[in-house]
């Protein structure tokens, strides 16, 4: 698979069809695969596509003012939703992008392995629902479901919604219920929910990684970079900013969040941010009809659209 992708990318670069490729490259450790740009055929030697390519590359395509060269990007199915959404918002110029769709069977989480006591990873092979990992200390076989990235465990679609060329085949929408976590919280009492979120959100260190990684968060001037906003940095006095930051972060992407799961994946404090985003997605689905951001480039954004018979906010009070 990796070699097929590589040779396609090499062809694109050598014919001059694109001047840059956005893909992944191995970092210091085997599992440490990060986004990278490749500008020559030789540099493609470092290109990697394996089970640790969780990062969504769509955000790297956001327009750089004044730069209009053609770029190729390698996207997994879920990443294509993000790109579609960016095109819809005019943040990416479709003509300047070549999308190479690649299949994905769910990516793995090194962090989950580490929690299970598996360290010093040097190799990894997935066969069906088993994962064989090689470490400095020997070989082990694990259940794939135990070490899937959280976002991949509830993947909503394996279908590429936008691409110029596919390597392998595209998949189908999945019918996994991604709202189980949200429903569990909704079923709790107000106090229990408050306790749950206090416990989660108070760990936030305001590194802003969730915002930076999010392909929907692409404002040039972010409210959280504005010192006058009163929420530009973490307060050590109390909990207000944590609430404020997290409500506003999730709110600003409501209706645009494609549920790509990057925010939760990058959070160094393991805060389940997807539970906030999915609450908005679930509410939009129940109040205003099913909506999947990024599924197409035409449909109305639910927050800049309305119908005359929308429910009143008192629907929240009536308890759901």
């Amino acid at each position: 698979m990796q070699e097929m992708i590589k040779s396609k990318l090499a062809e694109l670069l050598s014919t001059g069809a694109v001047t840059k490729v956005i893909g992944w490259k191995r970092g210091e450790n085997f599992y440490d695969v990060s986004p990278a740009a490749f500008e020559s055929v030789e540099s493609l030697a470092d290109f990697v596509y394996d089970d640790f390519c969780g990062a969504n590359l769509s955000k790297f395509l956001v327009k750089e003012p004044g730069k209009e060269s053609k770029v190729a990007v390698v996207l997994k199915p879920c990443d294509t939703f993000s790109l579609n959404q960016l095109i819809k918002e005019n943040r990416v110029n479709r003509e300047n992008i070549f999308v190479l769709g690649v299949p994905c069977e769910g990516k793995l989480s090194e962090e989950k392995m580490r929690v299970m006591g598996i360290v010093g990873l040097t190799g990894c092979k997935v066969e069906g629902d088993k994962v064989t990992v090689e470490t400095l200390y020997g070989t082990e076989t694990l259940d794939k479901n135990d070490v899937l990235l959280t976002k991949c465990a509830t993947c909503h679609s394996k279908k590429h919604v936008i691409f110029d060329e596919l390597i392998g085949e595209t998949g189908e929408d999945s019918d996994v219920d991604r709202f189980v976590g949200v429903a569990e919280l909704e079923a709790m009492s107000e106090d229990e929910r408050y306790e749950f979120w206090r416990n989660e959100l108070s760990r936030c260190i305001r590194c802003n990684a969730c915002r930076n990684a999010c392909p929907a968060c692409t404002c040039e001037k972010c409210v959280f970079d504005n010192d006058a906003s009163g929420v530009a940095a973490k307060s050590n006095a109390n909990s207000f900013e944590e609430n404020m930051f997290h409500i506003i972060r999730a709110y600003h992407v409501a209706g645009r969040c494609t549920d790509c799961g990057e925010c939760s994946r990058v959070c160094p404090q393991h805060i389940p941010l997807h539970l906030l985003n999915r609450k908005f997605i679930k509410d939009i689905n129940t109040f205003y009809g099913d909506f999947q951001a990024g599924a197409d480039a035409e449909s109305e954004h639910p927050l800049v659209h309305f119908t005359e018979n929308d429910p009143e906010p008192s629907i929240v009070k009536e308890g759901k």
Binding site: R193, Y194, F196, K279, F306, P313, I315, V316
Partner: peptide
């Protein structure tokens, strides 16, 4: 009409956070 949608979502989120 726009306000109604926005505010509904915000109120729902506040309640979800235990406010």
């Amino acid at each position: 009409y726009y306000a109604r949608r926005r505010i509904t979502l915000l109120f729902s989120m506040l309640s979800y956070l235990g406010i």
